[in-house]
Design a binder for these strands. Structure first.
Lengths: 217, 217
DNA sequence: GAGACCATCAGGGAAACCCCCGAACCGACC
DNA sequence: GGTCGGTTCGGGGGTTTCCCTGATGGTCTC
């Protein structure tokens, strides 16, 4: 069964990219580039999931969500954004989105996330899960508890990968990590590559920042 | 005039390295590898400055300082550590040390730091100065005000260097920083190199970590 | 036993990083 | 007028990062 998806993003290229990546795996029932068009289109098509860009001209994507969540309780919302700032994530989650992924996500992963959200799961990019959970445990303002939280981030990594991740975040070079763990530089490269891919990070600086903000150092 | 210095560090190699680096520029009147030996030696030799490792077996280096500061008020203390954790720094400064440098410091810089401390100045590694000042401005528990604070860290950097530093810490590549600031990649390289040297960091990962722990992002 | 995952390592290559040197221009300061 | 520091670049070169393909062997599960 293909889920019915509505796209909201002000960049036509992004919408085209999402369409191309998703292919026939889902049914894209409509698109919108701004808040009014999105509200109208979603109201008309009643999709299973709305893939919602957080930053839109003429109001946040959150405005769309808040305008319709009462009216269309069966619609699930997955936030899509370039931003990984905690405030953006938490704001849209509090508004009612069932997930939040960044635009660095791969096509297959996006498809998987859409399906999970449509099925009622809660989905985050691995690197975001940490402070989303922090925010929920700290501030008791969240209404709906998550049935299932996928991608707890660290749990994606094997024990060895976690080990390498820590040393990467602490600034050690591949060579230093290798001699510290008594493995070759090439093995460290493998683990590092896996870590970055699994956490959807593109280089070790993002890893360092991620680890620092999540107090994993 | 050569200052009389006492070394406290549990690693013989570190003590040997300090001796070698300092050469005849100072008079090393004694060494110790643990707390009791240090207390005894310092009491016997009454040096101008004690170069004190923060982490010692059988008690912190702070124990040495607290045991002797009342008895020997003329002795100046310079903390030497591998740690740049805020709590370590602040604890030993509050205990009465007149400075704190990490073991990444160069020989000439260490000599300079020792002389400054012996002369009554307060000396920090540039990257530590930030949160030391923060701690003092936040918690008013510090007894002795510093006559002169050298190396205020961020203040070491020019305006342009601070700008580049921020973007570096945020993970932008040299190329991206260049196009964002409308300067060439080579100029970015120059600024980056200056930033790392001035903050005594060896690569941009350490910079990212430093900026993250100091909330400069 | 086949498949899936993990850990280990290799070769190769593009890009980025970091440093060395030198140079030019400019403004401030003595 | 000279010196100093900041900002702007260039050449050159070694190191590091990151990805690609591919290979081996171990464990675990179905």
């Amino acid at each position: 069964m293909t889920h019915r998806v509505f796209l909201v993003d002000d960049h036509a290229m992004v919408r085209a990219g999402v369409r191309a990546e998703l292919g026939d795996a889902v049914d894209v029932v409509g698109e919108a580039a701004d808040v009014p068009t999105a509200i109208e289109g979603i109201r008309a098509t009643r999709p299973d999931v709305v893939l919602l860009d957080v930053h839109l001209p003429g109001g946040d994507g959150r405005a769309v969500l808040e305008a319709l969540r009462g009216e269309l309780p069966d619609v699930r919302w997955l936030a899509l954004s370039v931003s990984d700032a905690a405030e953006d994530v938490i704001a849209v989650i509090r508004a009612g989105a069932r997930g939040y992924v960044t635009k660095t996500i791969s096509g297959p992963d996006l498809l998987d996330a859409l399906r999970r959200v449509a099925d009622g799961d809660v989905v985050f990019s691995p690197r975001l899960a940490g402070f989303v959970l922090d925010a929920f445990s700290a501030g008791p303002a969240a209404p709906a508890p998550a049935e299932e939280v996928t991608d707890p981030g660290l749990d994606l990594l094997s024990a060895r990968e976690r080990e390498v991740m820590q040393l990467l975040a602490r600034g050690y070079t591949y060579r230093e990590i290798g001699s510290r763990l008594f493995i070759s530089v090439k093995t460290v490269e493998s683990h590092a590559s896996n870590v970055l891919r699994k956490l959807q990070l593109s280089n070790r600086n993002e890893l360092t920042r991620w680890a620092a903000t999540n107090r994993l150092l």
